[in-house]
Design a protein around this nucleic acid. Structure first.
Length: 264
DNA sequence: ATGGCCGTTTTGAACGGA
């Protein structure tokens, strides 16, 4: 089963690019972020005609996440527990073929020292609480999306340029690591621990793409039971180089039906 | 100094992104 995630920065502006990518990459599940539309405006029919079910947590103008799947969804959950007053559409979760999958758009949190950063921190605490429940449920699980976290200095072109950014704060990175200590594994680094320039985002400004001044902030976190079935993972940089691209590019992984044989 | 963006919204300056 192939799982993928992509912050598309408006599904309306990116529809042709997303359709072209799923035709080529053929993911079984694609988690989308920043669809920037309400559920009624989501191009459900275009995906349905390609054999995909859709599950949408929409919001007008900002945020918005969705899941596409070739197989039916079971037990969908829209929204993240822990703050009933939170109206931002940043979380959707469901079971596909016995795997629990989530599409996550974690708050940006800039500038630091403001209510936006506090919101990011409390959102990460809520995600931690949800992740704990998912592990206790015991199903193989993939948390996929735009985490807005640069985990390590190697995950950005110039760490000093990000020192005062919410994406690279010690507190932000510590909460991301807490998810890992809980039992969620960074799929990309599990397979490619020292791959350089493993970026998923390049700013529109300053020729960042042309200079490869990127950051790795889109992640697939796998429970141990899902990691045990991981056979491949990669970042597909090609969509970022297309005209009218999103500032993010997709990352995907392959989960085998059974665990790969031990290499002894 | 070593850059210049993009998508959204009661269409045009403001906001959010990272």
């Amino acid at each position: 089963m192939r799982l993928a995630t992509w912050n598309v920065n408006s599904i309306k502006a990116r529809l042709d690019a997303v359709l072209a990518w799923i035709d080529e990459a053929a993911p079984d599940v694609l988690a989308l972020q920043e669809i920037k539309c309400v559920g009624d405006s989501f191009p459900e029919l275009e995906f349905k005609s390609r054999g995909y079910h859709t599950l949408v947590a929409g919001q007008k103008s900002y945020n918005g996440v969705a899941l596409l799947s070739r197989h039916p969804f079971k037990d969908p959950v829209i929204g993240l527990d822990g703050d009933p007053s939170d109206e931002q559409a940043r979380y959707v979760e469901a079971t596909v073929e016995g795997v629990r999958v989530a599409s996550i758009y974690l708050p940006n949190g800039n500038p630091i020292g403001t209510e936006k950063f506090n919101y990011k921190m409390s959102w990460m605490d809520r995600l931690q609480a949800r992740a704990k429940i998912l592990l206790e449920n015991g199903m193989p699980t993939a948390l996929m999306g735009d985490f807005n976290v640069i985990p390590e200095p190697e995950d950005c072109y110039n760490p000093s340029a990000w020192r005062n950014d919410a994406l690279f704060q010690a507190e932000t990175r510590a909460k991301f690591r807490a998810l890992c200590w809980l039992g969620f594994y960074d799929a990309y680094r599990s397979v490619r621990p020292r791959a350089p320039s493993a970026f998923t985002f390049w700013d529109y400004q300053g020729g960042a793409w042309q200079k490869d001044h990127g950051i790795r902030i889109d992640h697939i976190l796998l429970s141990a039971t899902a990691l045990d079935r991981l056979s491949d993972v990669d970042i597909d940089r090609r969509p970022r180089g297309q005209p009218k691209a999103s500032d993010h590019t997709p990352i995907w992984c392959e989960i085998s039906d059974t665990s790969p044989a031990p290499r002894l």
